[in-house]
Design a protein around this nucleic acid. Sequence first.
DNA 1: CCAAAAGTGTTCCCGGTACACCCATGC
DNA 2: GCATGGGTGTACCGGGAACACTTTTGG
Lengths: 236, 236
Amino acid sequence: MPNIEYTVFGSSIVNDVRVTVDVVAFAIEQDSLEVLLIKRKYEPFRNQWALPGGFLASSDQSLEEAAARELSEETNVSDIYLEQLYSFGDIDRDPRGRTVTIAYLALLRADEVELQAATDASGVAWFPVHSLPDLAFDHGRILDYAISRLRYKIEYSPCVFSLLPESFTLRSLQNAYEIILGKEIDNRNFRKKFLGTGILIDQDELTRGGPHRPAKLYKFSMQEFSRLADRPVFTF
Amino acid sequence: MPNIEYTVFGSSIVNDVRVTVDVVAFAIEQDSLEVLLIKRKYEPFRNQWALPGGFLASSDQSLEEAAARELSEETNVSDIYLEQLYSFGDIDRDPRGRTVTIAYLALLRADEVELQAATDASGVAWFPVHSLPDLAFDHGRILDYAISRLRYKIEYSPCVFSLLPESFTLRSLQNAYEIILGKEIDNRNFRKKFLGTGILIDQDELTRGGPHRPAKLYKFSMQEFSRLADRPVFTF
DNA sequence: CCAAAAGTGTTCCCGGTACACCCATGC
DNA sequence: GCATGGGTGTACCGGGAACACTTTTGG
């Protein structure tokens, strides 16, 4: 691998680092948490599944904009929940040479997404996080990190609502928690707690057409949420 | 600013991105939280204060190793608390050209640190976070981010103990919390809570030489801490 | 009328918070 | 003996956790 010398930065500096942005995009489909993967069209890891991502472009005003761009190359969505996760830069994570990637977490509403493979991918698909193919690069590790972050955030931030449609039932909200946390939740306490916070607004509307008793629809109120305080372990 | 074409990465890619690592190193000195700054020897921002940092080197096995290296160029410390904070990559954050920096948080024990300016710095010093000079680049923003992260972490992780000497009094522990959180804490509740966790081990030893009643010395037990559970807002 | 999911209340317990006084030492 | 910081206990309150039955609809 060649080292390239130049003097842009005042003194002569050896540059052999690339910067990429990768996106871990989650959605909830039926009864599982799914992640968006693309099938690589080019080497390395040709024909393997990987996280959507790519090189930081000079047209990107910010890292977040780059992540949004990468995501919109594979889907029709824009204006979604996007949060920087972590940067990975171990020396051997890309066989082509030193590459630092900034990983982003994206939360999508399954019903609003249409997939479309970008030019550097031969396929795009959702995979349930519990039955995944082998991923390219260190993307398996990045995905694990994203899952633990999501589990963590769902307990103190209102990020679940980015995974649900605008209007949702308490049951579908509880499902989201159960799927992500991987455990059952007492539904009486769950309802009491959420309704008690005041962050759910009753839409005075019921689900229709189901085989059973219709459920009330709610909407999330960011305004009400921002009134709440969080309470960590060592609070004084 | 030139674009440099090369073919290391299979297809021809335009590369004009640099990667740096910056370190926000905190220590507690007397009654304030202090941050380590260096005085820049070269342009841009020559003679301005900045966070210690520099380009990712090809000898760095990982980003964390790079951060540790940058820090050890200014101090005699190694083997310290180091945690990746966030990556900053806005297009205009460095006047020389596109630069992505991965910021790290370091927590040091004031009594173990000796300062020594690195070759790219004409000075190195501790500054209280509440009376700072103007910082180079977007380092002011990075520092703000680090402070909010520290405030946050101190409430649910045992990171304070990285700022204190091995043996410390309950008062000095409480001081650390009060300095970082910027508020007074009821000392009865503080002691009850910390002693109740079982993570503090009584050293059967007292401070000596002070003008007043001697205080017990304690040590932090990581083992005991790992038994505890955290309790976020939306816990079920 | 049956199956399936929606919806609801009470009790117990623990941890958080507020609050005031005695103790040990150096000078 | 006094000034200064070290050290302790109690009562109240609110939120979390456990727990079982009724209601509404479609078929």
